[in-house]
Design a protein around this nucleic acid. Structure first.
Lengths: 237, 237
DNA sequence: TCAAAAGTGTTCGATATACACCCATGC
DNA sequence: GCATGGGTGTATATCGAACACTTTTGA
């Protein structure tokens, strides 16, 4: 009976979305699975500790990676295919990074978002972090490509459930066209500009600032900011 | 390093909803954790095997419990608090049911639904299965009460995402008032009868039958059925 | 004829969609 | 003055919410 049941390590993997150049990006980390392979990028993640909840592990890993203490994050799925960690190159990396003979590993996937202009402080064991456009994502190890696909679907549901989180993808001050492009990127469909302006006007928690763009060779756009306090009041009603 | 990372068993737990007497019910199993405790009810679940995906484990456990081959099911959350399996009574039961010294156990929770009038064939190691009204759920072991709470929230999202699954809670032929009561139970709010009839008429996949109630001491209600084929056509457009 | 549940329509407000032109700015 | 992106309003369709009475049946 003792060998019949799975007895396994558990990891968390985080899909951190950012927004830049009218595109959704995700945060990848560089590791050295095999020097011959060109990029060695993967989703940030790691094994959870004894006496650690998975939610806490995800927070910890994101903190180590970005320096951000309490990131907004959202668990969305456990990936546990028996084959997911059996590619030889992946097993080799696991042996080196953790310990030998890990032939199976289940992971709990998290979704998070982060402003791309935020300065990140990487204190993790990964060499470097980098933003990568969702549209030209490389082939990732394990089932990380599948995890990203699932995350793309999940982020819509998350934003539908709590519209405020979309503003975590933008800088503190933003112009309407950025917000517009972001909505288009998240929902992957084009949105009429006039209707979009109307929609934004109806969000009283998106407040216009006095500041406008400078030195642009077209009409300067007004900056807006997201007002958390107004938002919270609203949603309680 | 070897003892730093969690190395654990993994279980699945299933919250199976049924609908009866205008109420949501869930399927519980009886086990014998401790003869002194009165009921010994818990959520159906069990450890996953080596070489088994969690989704497959959930299917297997539900099959053993109900005899149903491919149940409609939906993973919704991993519960992994370090304390969740540390109540002495729970640990005692784990030792007996599986093996000694399980002090930590993470679980992946699934949601499923089942017609309560369906004859269930329990070939699992649990003594018996029984439907229990959600409104008078006993105190359950582990964090099963928390899991049920999370499932109540999740079932709304699931139905919003795929309206067809609500019909899995009803018998093949049903009357509008049953469907009405079901919606009220799931969304936990009262719904105007007239508006509800209108809504049902707009669902062309809910088709009226010739058959009506007999021997009721009030106007006989018409039976309806859910037409899967029409539903699938619709949603593709 | 009474009790009990079935069944039926209209109005209103809010929300989403479709659609095209002028404005400000730097070069 | 022109290229570039910023910003604006109206009309229509759709959807959800509110609201009360008549019908059928068995006892």
């Amino acid at each position: 009976m003792g060998t019949k049941f799975i007895h396994t390590y558990v990891s968390v993997d985080c899909v951190v979305f950012g927004f830049d150049n009218d595109q959704l990006n995700i945060l990848l980390v560089q590791f050295d699975r095999d020097q011959k392979e060109d990029k060695n990028l993967k989703l940030p993640g790691g094994l959870i500790y004894n006496d650690e909840d998975v939610d806490d592990a995800a927070q910890r890993i994101l903190f180590e990676l970005t320096g951000i203490k309490r990131m907004n994050l959202h668990q969305f799925r456990c990936f546990a295919s028996p084959d997911r960690a059996r590619h030889p190159a992946d097993m080799k990396w696991l042996s080196k990074a953790y310990q030998p003979n890990i032939d199976r590993l289940i992971t709990v996937a998290y979704l998070s978002i982060c402003k791309v202009d935020r300065k990140l402080q990487n204190i993790s064991r990964f060499k470097s972090t980098q933003w990568c456009r969702l549209s030209d994502l490389p082939v990732l190890p394990f089932d990380h490509n599948r995890i990203v696909e699932a995350a793309r679907i999940e982020i819509k549901r998350w934003i539908d459930h709590d519209p405020a989180i979309i503003f975590d993808l933008l800088p503190g001050k933003f112009i309407i066209s950025q917000l517009h492009a972001l909505y288009e990127a998240v929902y992957n469909q084009s949105i009429d500009v006039r209707n979009f302006h109307k929609k934004v006007k109806s969000m009283e928690y998106v407040v216009p600032l006095e500041e406008k763009q400078v030195n642009v060779n077209h009409r300067a756009a007004r900056y807006y900011k997201f007002d958390k306090v107004i938002y919270k009041k609203r949603t309680r009603i």
